[in-house]
Design a protein around this nucleic acid. Structure first.
Lengths: 372, 372
DNA sequence: CTGTTAGCGCTTTCAC
DNA sequence: GTGAAAGCGCTAACAG
């Protein structure tokens, strides 16, 4: 496009400046003195080619700087090495790490990644799906917002892997975090320290992620025989500021709260600020825990006790599933894999100021989904 | 790929389960009762089509669920809506924000983004460039590691925008941060507070980014009449751990240091840890500043005084340059734009314990590159 | 304003 | 093991 303009003025019919058509497989064939079909076979490895000829072709390719045109290849072979990745917000380190894990594994498997952000909006998500269809990705990985995009992709035969959460009623492959387990464990950690009035700060419970965390929180309380107080489940929006205000309001209303569980990293940020602004000491005045471990959580003081979701591993697992699915080595049915989170205990949790009597936990607290 | 397998068993010759060939422009033409070329014109907007026919085509497209195959379109028209983005490590929030800014602007301009990470390795970078060439991206944005990838892209006529730093001797478009200016301002801030023994923690000075920061640091000292002490420029690797050790060693060696300037966010992380591990109070015992502002820097106490690079804006500017370049509205020559950083003063900086006599700054300290 | 023709660069039968 | 021929789905000439 741009280069062409140059051609006009400084046309020194020499090496550069000219639009210089890229070598095609025809050129390569000519250079290696064989037919295009043989060249194709030599490069792609499909079909028979004598070792001698293959070497010659490879050398010639290097020589003339031949790079196969994957557009043409895709058109003809009806496949592509592109995988679509549709995520909510790459600015959020959670998604960034997810994307990084995906890209890493996919790249090493010879695929490349088309990333589209949807900012959590269903329309943008559908638009992204349309793009994926247009460029004929061979699979898609999506952190779903609504079911529309996933449905659209699937109905066109594109294998999709849902990441982090599952949209109802769709039987695609998926890789999820065991939210119930993680939330239960970290809540139990608080319970074990003696907390009985534990608030959960959460932005949504419609997705499997939020629902699971809520369920885990409840399960831990139930297991400890602590009655559920609905007023301790604090709804908020998916933004630090909103979370900060929500926590502030909660503490005005319920000064008896001794521990706070933020359901994700953004809410944790807001909660952390709210506590600091109020001049509350953590963990002396209030214990704080969060779902989703980020670097800053170990940099602040006190370090925050969290549930580490192993996000990069989540991403790599998604990518692996995609690769297997494309290769056809996955069974026909949808496979769902769970990543087991682990809790990281730091300094933001301690026994409450006036400890309640520690409650014995029920022996059997198994409630999480069965792992893969 | 995957869907096909289903066809065998549960073959209810009905609506789904079958491979169901995607509608082509032929199908669309048939449905709208016109020729393929007219359908093409109606969709792409190139050439004349009566309003009546266009409406009919659009309706038919909606009706049969036609999505243009951009593979075929690209092959024929020798253009694509794909832009390659080649960055070092999307896990690093700096690059994540850069990518987010790029994606945002590009998406709204109708392009999609192919992201490849190179982990700072030149070979991986070249591999990424090869991918871009293969899929015929219409432009590329790269945070260059070596000159090879950029050179390769450019020699094939792909417009490239270098982001954040510039590789020597290549005249591509670029968007850079005014590193000299930012580093000078923040160093001067320390000087103004009375610091005279300011260490710079830096991982590289080969790229324009590191070189600029070093130059800004030096310019500020020079302007203040403070002699350069080479031992205060502390080299380290691009990792928090390495930075932590480097700071530790520095402070063993030079207890007289009163302020520390970390040249990027990773080094800042290491520096912050080192200071905490040593039990030093910031800013009472030592002031700390950093280049590149990240959320955690305002969450820790004390909040860290930083240079905000406006990374998302940097990304958007790169994308805009790409769009303009593709549209041909940019001049023939390479254009370089600078982003003006701003310094964010928080609580990690204060006068040194035993303040030196504040030094009057020279009146004219203009040394930065001239802005765009 | 619309239709016809040709061909982008590659892979894939199908002969040999 | 290799080559010849056909065509993926689309759009750019060119007629009409």
């Amino acid at each position: 496009m741009v280069g062409k303009r140059e051609g006009g003025g400084e046309g020194r019919a020499g090496t550069r400046a000219s639009p210089r058509r890229r070598p095609t497989i025809q050129d390569l064939a000519r250079a290696a003195d064989i037919s295009p079909s043989t060249a194709s076979r030599a490069l792609s490895g499909n079909g028979y080619v004598s070792a001698e000829v293959r070497a010659r072709v490879l050398a010639a390719a290097e020589e003339i700087g031949y790079v196969p045109d994957s557009i043409a290849r895709s058109l003809r072979s009806r496949t592509s090495r592109a995988v679509g990745v549709l995520i909510s917000d790459i600015r959020n380190p959670f998604y960034a790490n997810l994307a990084a894990g995906i890209e890493e594994r996919l790249r090493s498997a010879g695929y490349h990644v088309i990333v589209v952000n949807n900012d959590g909006e269903a329309d943008a998500e559908v638009e992204g799906a349309r793009t994926f269809l247009a460029v004929r990705v061979s699979a898609a990985i999506v952190t779903p917002v609504s079911d529309r995009a996933v449905r659209m992709l699937m109905s066109d035969g594109v294998p999709v892997v849902q990441a982090d959460r599952l949209v109802d009623g769709l039987s695609s492959d998926a890789v999820l975090v065991d939210n119930v387990q993680g939330a239960q464990e970290i809540t139990s950690h608080l319970v074990d320290l003696g907390h009985r009035t534990i608030a959960l700060l959460i932005d949504e419970t419609d997705w499997t992620s939020g629902a699971g965390r809520l369920a885990g929180y409840r399960a831990a309380l139930r297991a400890a025989g602590i009655p559920m107080d609905p007023a301790l489940v604090v709804p908020t929006r998916f933004q630090p500021d909103a979370a900060r205000e929500a926590v502030d309001a909660l503490l005005d209303r319920r000064p008896d709260v001794t521990a706070l569980f933020a359901a994700n990293n953004l809410l944790a940020e807001g909660a952390f600020q709210a506590l600091r602004l109020r001049g509350l000491r953590v963990p002396e005045d209030l214990s704080l825990v969060a779902f989703d471990d980020l670097p800053w959580m170990s940099m602040v003081s006190p370090g925050i006790t969290t549930v580490d979701q192993h996000t990069a591993e989540l991403g790599r697992t998604c990518a692996q599933l995609v690769v297997d699915r494309i290769a056809g080595s996955e069974s026909g049915e949808a496979t769902v894999r769970y990543i087991e989170p682990s809790i990281v205990i730091r300094s933001s949790t301690a026994a409450p100021r006036e400890p309640s009597v520690p409650v014995a936990r029920a022996a059997s607290t198994q409630v999480g989904p069965v792992t893969s």
